[in-house]
Design a protein around this nucleic acid. Structure first.
Lengths: 186, 186
DNA sequence: CATTATATGGTGCGACTGTTTCAAGAACGG
DNA sequence: CCGTTCTTGAAACAGTCGCACCATATAATG
Protein backbone atom coordinates (compact mmCIF):
# COMPACT_ATOMS: atom_id res chain seq x y z
CA UNK A 1 0.00 0.00 0.00
CA UNK A 2 1.02 3.61 0.30
CA UNK A 3 1.27 6.23 -2.40
CA UNK A 4 2.09 4.61 -5.75
CA UNK A 5 5.36 5.52 -7.45
CA UNK A 6 5.26 7.78 -10.48
CA UNK A 7 7.85 6.60 -13.02
CA UNK A 8 6.42 8.94 -15.66
CA UNK A 9 7.79 11.93 -13.76
CA UNK A 10 11.36 10.63 -14.00
CA UNK A 11 10.94 10.01 -17.71
CA UNK A 12 9.57 13.48 -18.32
CA UNK A 13 12.42 15.00 -16.33
CA UNK A 14 14.94 12.94 -18.27
CA UNK A 15 13.52 14.10 -21.58
CA UNK A 16 13.65 17.77 -20.61
CA UNK A 17 17.07 17.39 -19.01
CA UNK A 18 18.32 15.93 -22.29
CA UNK A 19 16.93 18.93 -24.13
CA UNK A 20 18.76 21.17 -21.71
CA UNK A 21 22.08 19.37 -22.04
CA UNK A 22 21.82 19.36 -25.83
CA UNK A 23 21.16 23.09 -25.72
CA UNK A 24 23.76 24.10 -23.12
CA UNK A 25 26.46 21.47 -23.39
CA UNK A 26 27.75 19.00 -20.87
CA UNK A 27 30.86 20.79 -19.62
CA UNK A 28 29.47 23.36 -17.23
CA UNK A 29 26.41 21.32 -16.27
CA UNK A 30 25.24 22.07 -12.74
CA UNK A 31 22.27 20.72 -10.84
CA UNK A 32 20.85 23.99 -9.57
CA UNK A 33 20.59 25.84 -12.91
CA UNK A 34 19.37 22.66 -14.58
CA UNK A 35 16.67 22.17 -11.96
CA UNK A 36 15.55 25.76 -12.24
CA UNK A 37 15.31 25.55 -16.04
CA UNK A 38 13.26 22.38 -15.67
CA UNK A 39 10.96 23.88 -13.06
CA UNK A 40 12.05 21.39 -10.45
CA UNK A 41 14.64 21.25 -7.69
CA UNK A 42 18.11 19.72 -7.29
CA UNK A 43 16.54 17.67 -4.54
CA UNK A 44 14.23 15.96 -7.02
CA UNK A 45 16.97 15.39 -9.59
CA UNK A 46 18.96 13.46 -7.01
CA UNK A 47 15.84 11.72 -5.81
CA UNK A 48 15.11 10.50 -9.31
CA UNK A 49 18.62 9.73 -10.55
CA UNK A 50 20.61 9.06 -7.39
CA UNK A 51 23.60 11.23 -8.28
CA UNK A 52 24.77 13.68 -10.88
CA UNK A 53 26.89 11.02 -12.53
CA UNK A 54 23.92 8.74 -13.00
CA UNK A 55 21.84 11.63 -14.29
CA UNK A 56 24.50 12.42 -16.88
CA UNK A 57 24.72 8.77 -17.86
CA UNK A 58 20.95 8.66 -18.33
CA UNK A 59 20.99 11.86 -20.37
CA UNK A 60 23.76 10.54 -22.62
CA UNK A 61 21.89 7.30 -23.15
CA UNK A 62 18.75 9.23 -24.02
CA UNK A 63 20.67 11.47 -26.43
CA UNK A 64 22.16 8.42 -28.13
CA UNK A 65 18.73 6.88 -28.38
CA UNK A 66 17.31 9.98 -30.03
CA UNK A 67 20.21 10.21 -32.45
CA UNK A 68 19.88 6.61 -33.51
CA UNK A 69 16.14 6.96 -34.08
CA UNK A 70 16.54 10.07 -36.20
CA UNK A 71 19.32 8.52 -38.25
CA UNK A 72 17.30 5.38 -38.85
CA UNK A 73 14.37 7.52 -40.01
CA UNK A 74 16.51 9.47 -42.41
CA UNK A 75 18.82 7.01 -44.12
CA UNK A 76 17.35 5.02 -46.99
CA UNK A 77 17.18 1.34 -46.18
CA UNK A 78 19.18 0.48 -49.27
CA UNK A 79 21.03 3.25 -51.00
CA UNK A 80 21.65 3.03 -54.71
CA UNK A 81 25.41 3.36 -54.28
CA UNK A 82 28.06 3.76 -51.58
CA UNK A 83 28.51 7.32 -52.70
CA UNK A 84 24.86 8.11 -52.24
CA UNK A 85 24.94 6.48 -48.82
CA UNK A 86 27.99 8.47 -47.81
CA UNK A 87 26.45 11.72 -48.97
CA UNK A 88 23.33 10.84 -47.00
CA UNK A 89 25.29 10.37 -43.80
CA UNK A 90 27.21 13.60 -44.31
CA UNK A 91 24.09 15.58 -45.13
CA UNK A 92 22.37 14.26 -42.04
CA UNK A 93 25.26 14.68 -39.63
CA UNK A 94 26.38 18.08 -40.83
CA UNK A 95 22.88 19.56 -40.83
CA UNK A 96 22.48 22.46 -38.39
CA UNK A 97 19.76 20.57 -36.51
CA UNK A 98 22.37 18.00 -35.54
CA UNK A 99 24.80 20.59 -34.15
CA UNK A 100 23.79 19.98 -30.52
CA UNK A 101 24.33 16.26 -30.92
CA UNK A 102 27.68 16.81 -32.61
CA UNK A 103 28.80 19.12 -29.86
CA UNK A 104 27.77 16.64 -27.18
CA UNK A 105 29.59 13.93 -29.10
CA UNK A 106 32.83 15.90 -29.13
CA UNK A 107 32.42 16.92 -25.50
CA UNK A 108 32.05 13.33 -24.40
CA UNK A 109 35.05 12.27 -26.42
CA UNK A 110 37.23 15.03 -24.98
CA UNK A 111 36.17 14.27 -21.42
CA UNK A 112 36.71 10.58 -22.06
CA UNK A 113 40.33 11.29 -22.94
CA UNK A 114 40.92 12.41 -19.35
CA UNK A 115 38.38 10.17 -17.63
CA UNK A 116 38.01 7.00 -19.70
CA UNK A 117 36.52 5.17 -16.73
CA UNK A 118 33.37 7.28 -16.96
CA UNK A 119 32.55 6.15 -20.50
CA UNK A 120 32.95 2.38 -20.59
CA UNK A 121 31.09 1.88 -23.88
CA UNK A 122 32.71 4.67 -25.83
CA UNK A 123 34.59 2.42 -28.24
CA UNK A 124 31.29 0.82 -29.14
CA UNK A 125 30.11 4.19 -30.43
CA UNK A 126 32.76 3.81 -33.14
CA UNK A 127 32.81 0.09 -33.84
CA UNK A 128 29.03 -0.07 -33.77
CA UNK A 129 28.96 1.52 -37.19
CA UNK A 130 30.97 -1.23 -38.84
CA UNK A 131 28.27 -3.77 -39.63
CA UNK A 132 25.99 -1.16 -41.20
CA UNK A 133 28.74 0.62 -43.09
CA UNK A 134 30.47 -2.57 -44.12
CA UNK A 135 27.31 -3.66 -45.86
CA UNK A 136 26.72 -0.31 -47.52
CA UNK A 137 30.29 -0.11 -48.82
CA UNK A 138 30.78 -3.72 -49.80
CA UNK A 139 31.30 -2.71 -53.46
CA UNK A 140 34.37 -0.66 -52.57
CA UNK A 141 35.45 -2.74 -49.57
CA UNK A 142 37.89 -5.62 -49.33
CA UNK A 143 35.56 -8.30 -48.02
CA UNK A 144 32.54 -9.17 -45.91
CA UNK A 145 34.23 -8.39 -42.57
CA UNK A 146 36.08 -5.33 -43.80
CA UNK A 147 36.47 -2.87 -40.93
CA UNK A 148 39.09 -0.71 -42.64
CA UNK A 149 36.79 0.93 -45.17
CA UNK A 150 34.19 1.86 -42.53
CA UNK A 151 37.00 3.16 -40.33
CA UNK A 152 38.21 5.45 -43.08
CA UNK A 153 34.74 6.57 -44.08
CA UNK A 154 33.80 7.50 -40.53
CA UNK A 155 37.15 9.19 -40.01
CA UNK A 156 36.43 11.42 -42.99
CA UNK A 157 32.98 12.24 -41.64
CA UNK A 158 34.22 13.00 -38.13
CA UNK A 159 37.26 14.89 -39.36
CA UNK A 160 35.13 17.06 -41.61
CA UNK A 161 32.65 17.60 -38.78
CA UNK A 162 35.56 18.74 -36.64
CA UNK A 163 36.58 21.18 -39.37
CA UNK A 164 33.03 22.39 -39.99
CA UNK A 165 32.28 23.00 -36.31
CA UNK A 166 35.54 24.90 -35.93
CA UNK A 167 35.67 27.01 -39.06
CA UNK A 168 32.01 27.03 -40.07
CA UNK A 169 33.14 26.74 -43.68
CA UNK A 170 30.42 24.58 -45.15
CA UNK A 171 31.41 25.11 -48.76
CA UNK A 172 34.97 23.88 -48.32
CA UNK A 173 33.96 20.88 -46.21
CA UNK A 174 31.25 19.93 -48.70
CA UNK A 175 33.80 20.07 -51.49
CA UNK A 176 36.17 17.89 -49.45
CA UNK A 177 33.48 15.26 -49.16
CA UNK A 178 32.92 15.49 -52.92
CA UNK A 179 36.61 14.89 -53.37
CA UNK A 180 36.51 11.83 -51.13
CA UNK A 181 33.56 10.46 -53.09
CA UNK A 182 35.54 10.98 -56.25
CA UNK A 183 38.49 9.07 -54.83
CA UNK A 184 36.19 6.23 -53.78
CA UNK A 185 34.55 6.05 -57.20
CA UNK A 186 37.72 5.59 -59.22
CA UNK B 1 65.80 52.32 -8.38
CA UNK B 2 63.95 49.62 -6.45
CA UNK B 3 64.10 45.86 -6.80
CA UNK B 4 64.51 44.82 -10.46
CA UNK B 5 61.77 42.67 -12.03
CA UNK B 6 62.41 39.01 -12.70
CA UNK B 7 60.77 38.00 -16.00
CA UNK B 8 62.58 34.66 -15.97
CA UNK B 9 60.40 33.46 -13.11
CA UNK B 10 57.23 33.94 -15.15
CA UNK B 11 58.76 32.06 -18.06
CA UNK B 12 59.85 29.18 -15.87
CA UNK B 13 56.41 29.01 -14.30
CA UNK B 14 54.79 29.06 -17.72
CA UNK B 15 56.96 26.18 -18.94
CA UNK B 16 56.17 24.02 -15.94
CA UNK B 17 52.48 24.97 -16.01
CA UNK B 18 52.39 23.83 -19.64
CA UNK B 19 53.92 20.51 -18.62
CA UNK B 20 51.25 20.19 -15.97
CA UNK B 21 48.37 20.97 -18.32
CA UNK B 22 49.70 18.58 -20.94
CA UNK B 23 49.91 15.89 -18.28
CA UNK B 24 46.59 16.52 -16.52
CA UNK B 25 44.38 18.05 -19.17
CA UNK B 26 42.67 21.39 -19.33
CA UNK B 27 39.17 20.51 -18.19
CA UNK B 28 39.54 20.24 -14.44
CA UNK B 29 42.37 22.73 -14.18
CA UNK B 30 42.39 24.56 -10.85
CA UNK B 31 44.81 27.12 -9.51
CA UNK B 32 45.49 25.61 -6.10
CA UNK B 33 46.49 22.10 -7.21
CA UNK B 34 48.46 23.58 -10.11
CA UNK B 35 50.34 25.93 -7.79
CA UNK B 36 51.10 23.13 -5.37
CA UNK B 37 52.46 20.89 -8.13
CA UNK B 38 54.62 23.77 -9.32
CA UNK B 39 55.91 24.57 -5.84
CA UNK B 40 54.36 28.01 -5.90
CA UNK B 41 51.10 29.60 -4.77
CA UNK B 42 47.86 30.68 -6.45
CA UNK B 43 48.83 34.16 -5.37
CA UNK B 44 51.92 34.08 -7.57
CA UNK B 45 50.10 32.59 -10.55
CA UNK B 46 47.69 35.49 -10.54
CA UNK B 47 50.51 37.91 -9.90
CA UNK B 48 52.33 36.65 -12.97
CA UNK B 49 49.42 36.08 -15.34
CA UNK B 50 46.70 38.39 -14.09
CA UNK B 51 43.88 35.86 -14.19
CA UNK B 52 43.24 32.20 -14.78
CA UNK B 53 41.98 32.95 -18.28
CA UNK B 54 45.19 34.67 -19.24
CA UNK B 55 47.22 31.87 -17.71
CA UNK B 56 45.34 29.33 -19.79
CA UNK B 57 45.81 31.43 -22.90
CA UNK B 58 49.55 31.62 -22.23
CA UNK B 59 49.74 27.87 -21.65
CA UNK B 60 47.89 27.13 -24.88
CA UNK B 61 50.18 29.45 -26.82
CA UNK B 62 53.21 27.74 -25.30
CA UNK B 63 51.82 24.30 -26.13
CA UNK B 64 51.19 25.35 -29.73
CA UNK B 65 54.72 26.72 -29.92
CA UNK B 66 56.18 23.45 -28.70
CA UNK B 67 54.07 21.40 -31.08
CA UNK B 68 55.08 23.50 -34.06
CA UNK B 69 58.76 23.22 -33.21
CA UNK B 70 58.63 19.45 -32.82
CA UNK B 71 56.72 19.03 -36.07
CA UNK B 72 59.15 21.23 -37.97
CA UNK B 73 62.04 19.14 -36.62
CA UNK B 74 60.43 15.89 -37.64
CA UNK B 75 58.97 16.40 -41.08
CA UNK B 76 61.35 16.18 -44.03
CA UNK B 77 61.69 19.48 -45.79
CA UNK B 78 60.67 17.94 -49.09
CA UNK B 79 59.15 14.52 -49.05
CA UNK B 80 59.61 12.21 -52.00
CA UNK B 81 55.88 11.90 -52.56
CA UNK B 82 52.55 13.04 -51.13
CA UNK B 83 52.06 9.57 -49.75
CA UNK B 84 55.34 9.65 -47.88
CA UNK B 85 54.50 13.10 -46.54
CA UNK B 86 51.08 11.94 -45.37
CA UNK B 87 52.55 8.89 -43.67
CA UNK B 88 55.08 11.14 -41.96
CA UNK B 89 52.36 13.38 -40.53
CA UNK B 90 50.34 10.42 -39.34
CA UNK B 91 53.33 8.71 -37.78
CA UNK B 92 54.26 11.89 -35.96
CA UNK B 93 50.78 12.82 -34.76
CA UNK B 94 49.69 9.36 -33.74
CA UNK B 95 52.87 8.61 -31.82
CA UNK B 96 52.27 8.03 -28.08
CA UNK B 97 54.55 10.97 -27.22
CA UNK B 98 52.04 13.26 -28.93
CA UNK B 99 49.09 11.96 -26.93
CA UNK B 100 49.11 14.86 -24.44
CA UNK B 101 49.08 17.35 -27.29
CA UNK B 102 46.31 15.51 -29.07
CA UNK B 103 44.21 15.43 -25.94
CA UNK B 104 44.71 19.13 -25.34
CA UNK B 105 43.80 19.75 -28.98
CA UNK B 106 40.51 17.89 -28.64
CA UNK B 107 39.77 19.49 -25.28
CA UNK B 108 40.21 22.98 -26.70
CA UNK B 109 38.01 22.16 -29.66
CA UNK B 110 35.24 20.78 -27.46
CA UNK B 111 35.34 23.77 -25.13
CA UNK B 112 35.40 26.08 -28.12
CA UNK B 113 32.09 24.60 -29.30
CA UNK B 114 30.41 25.99 -26.19
CA UNK B 115 32.59 29.08 -25.71
CA UNK B 116 33.85 30.18 -29.13
CA UNK B 117 34.64 33.64 -27.79
CA UNK B 118 37.51 32.23 -25.72
CA UNK B 119 39.38 30.88 -28.73
CA UNK B 120 39.44 33.62 -31.34
CA UNK B 121 42.20 32.06 -33.47
CA UNK B 122 40.86 28.53 -33.53
CA UNK B 123 40.01 28.47 -37.22
CA UNK B 124 43.58 29.43 -37.98
CA UNK B 125 44.69 26.17 -36.36
CA UNK B 126 42.96 24.44 -39.28
CA UNK B 127 43.49 26.79 -42.19
CA UNK B 128 47.12 27.34 -41.19
CA UNK B 129 47.96 23.93 -42.60
CA UNK B 130 46.78 24.74 -46.10
CA UNK B 131 49.87 26.44 -47.56
CA UNK B 132 52.20 23.70 -46.36
CA UNK B 133 49.89 20.84 -47.30
CA UNK B 134 48.85 22.37 -50.57
CA UNK B 135 52.48 22.42 -51.66
CA UNK B 136 53.14 18.87 -50.52
CA UNK B 137 50.07 17.52 -52.27
CA UNK B 138 50.25 19.52 -55.46
CA UNK B 139 50.64 16.35 -57.51
CA UNK B 140 47.27 15.05 -56.41
CA UNK B 141 45.64 18.46 -55.92
CA UNK B 142 43.54 20.48 -58.31
CA UNK B 143 45.66 23.62 -58.47
CA UNK B 144 48.06 25.94 -56.70
CA UNK B 145 45.46 27.36 -54.30
CA UNK B 146 43.70 24.07 -53.70
CA UNK B 147 42.27 24.04 -50.18
CA UNK B 148 40.01 21.04 -50.72
CA UNK B 149 42.72 18.39 -50.82
CA UNK B 150 44.39 19.67 -47.63
CA UNK B 151 40.97 19.82 -46.00
CA UNK B 152 40.32 16.18 -46.82
CA UNK B 153 43.80 15.07 -45.83
CA UNK B 154 43.62 16.75 -42.44
CA UNK B 155 40.09 15.47 -41.91
CA UNK B 156 41.37 11.95 -42.38
CA UNK B 157 44.22 12.55 -39.94
CA UNK B 158 41.98 14.11 -37.30
CA UNK B 159 39.22 11.59 -37.78
CA UNK B 160 41.65 8.72 -37.39
CA UNK B 161 43.18 10.38 -34.34
CA UNK B 162 39.68 10.60 -32.90
CA UNK B 163 39.23 6.88 -33.54
CA UNK B 164 42.65 5.95 -32.21
CA UNK B 165 42.28 7.94 -29.00
CA UNK B 166 38.86 6.41 -28.41
CA UNK B 167 39.38 2.77 -29.30
CA UNK B 168 43.16 2.49 -28.99
CA UNK B 169 43.11 0.26 -32.04
CA UNK B 170 46.36 1.24 -33.72
CA UNK B 171 46.35 -1.61 -36.22
CA UNK B 172 42.96 -0.78 -37.70
CA UNK B 173 43.67 2.96 -37.86
CA UNK B 174 47.04 2.36 -39.50
CA UNK B 175 45.35 0.19 -42.09
CA UNK B 176 42.76 2.89 -42.71
CA UNK B 177 45.52 5.36 -43.47
CA UNK B 178 47.07 2.82 -45.82
CA UNK B 179 43.73 2.58 -47.55
CA UNK B 180 43.51 6.35 -47.92
CA UNK B 181 47.02 6.43 -49.39
CA UNK B 182 45.95 3.78 -51.83
CA UNK B 183 42.94 5.83 -52.90
CA UNK B 184 45.15 8.88 -53.37
CA UNK B 185 47.67 6.97 -55.41
CA UNK B 186 45.29 5.64 -58.01
C1' DC C 1 -9.89 8.00 10.91
C1' DA C 2 -4.84 5.70 10.98
C1' DT C 3 -1.22 3.71 8.41
C1' DT C 4 2.18 3.43 4.90
C1' DA C 5 4.56 4.61 1.14
C1' DT C 6 6.18 8.04 -2.18
C1' DA C 7 7.06 12.92 -3.27
C1' DT C 8 8.88 17.35 -2.23
C1' DG C 9 10.56 21.74 0.08
C1' DG C 10 13.99 23.80 2.83
C1' DT C 11 18.23 24.12 4.90
C1' DG C 12 22.83 23.46 5.65
C1' DC C 13 27.37 21.11 5.45
C1' DG C 14 31.97 20.68 3.76
C1' DA C 15 34.71 21.27 0.04
C1' DC C 16 35.87 23.54 -3.50
C1' DT C 17 36.41 27.93 -6.97
C1' DG C 18 38.92 32.43 -8.73
C1' DT C 19 40.17 36.44 -6.74
C1' DT C 20 41.29 40.30 -3.32
C1' DT C 21 43.26 42.43 0.68
C1' DC C 22 46.83 43.34 3.85
C1' DA C 23 51.14 42.92 5.29
C1' DA C 24 55.71 41.69 5.34
C1' DG C 25 60.15 40.32 2.96
C1' DA C 26 63.81 41.11 -0.45
C1' DA C 27 66.75 43.45 -3.57
C1' DC C 28 68.17 47.35 -5.47
C1' DG C 29 69.80 52.95 -5.66
C1' DG C 30 71.09 56.98 -3.11
C1' DC D 1 70.66 54.25 7.06
C1' DC D 2 66.18 55.46 3.74
C1' DG D 3 63.07 55.00 -0.01
C1' DT D 4 61.37 52.45 -3.74
C1' DT D 5 59.98 48.69 -6.32
C1' DC D 6 59.22 43.87 -6.89
C1' DT D 7 57.98 39.61 -4.67
C1' DT D 8 55.62 36.62 -1.70
C1' DG D 9 52.79 34.54 2.24
C1' DA D 10 48.44 34.16 4.83
C1' DA D 11 44.01 34.90 5.17
C1' DA D 12 39.65 36.02 3.84
C1' DC D 13 35.78 36.89 0.55
C1' DA D 14 31.97 35.75 -2.10
C1' DG D 15 30.40 32.41 -4.62
C1' DT D 16 29.37 27.51 -6.43
C1' DC D 17 29.36 22.67 -6.15
C1' DG D 18 27.19 17.90 -5.13
C1' DC D 19 24.76 16.05 -1.66
C1' DA D 20 22.52 14.75 3.03
C1' DC D 21 19.39 15.48 6.57
C1' DC D 22 14.79 16.44 8.33
C1' DA D 23 10.24 17.67 8.09
C1' DT D 24 6.09 17.78 5.64
C1' DA D 25 2.85 17.08 1.97
C1' DT D 26 0.34 13.78 -0.85
C1' DA D 27 -2.06 9.70 -2.15
C1' DA D 28 -2.95 5.28 -1.71
C1' DT D 29 -4.98 0.99 1.74
C1' DG D 30 -7.31 -0.57 5.67
Amino acid sequence: MGRPPDPARREATLARATDYVLAHGLTGLSLRPLAEALGTSPRMLLYDFGSKQELVAAVLAEARRRGAVRLAEHLPARAASPEEYLRGIWAWMSAPERAPFVRLFFEVHADGLTHPENYPDQAEAITGWFPTLGAAFREVGTGPDDTVTPTLVMAVIRGLLFDLTTTGDRHRTDLALDRFCELLRR
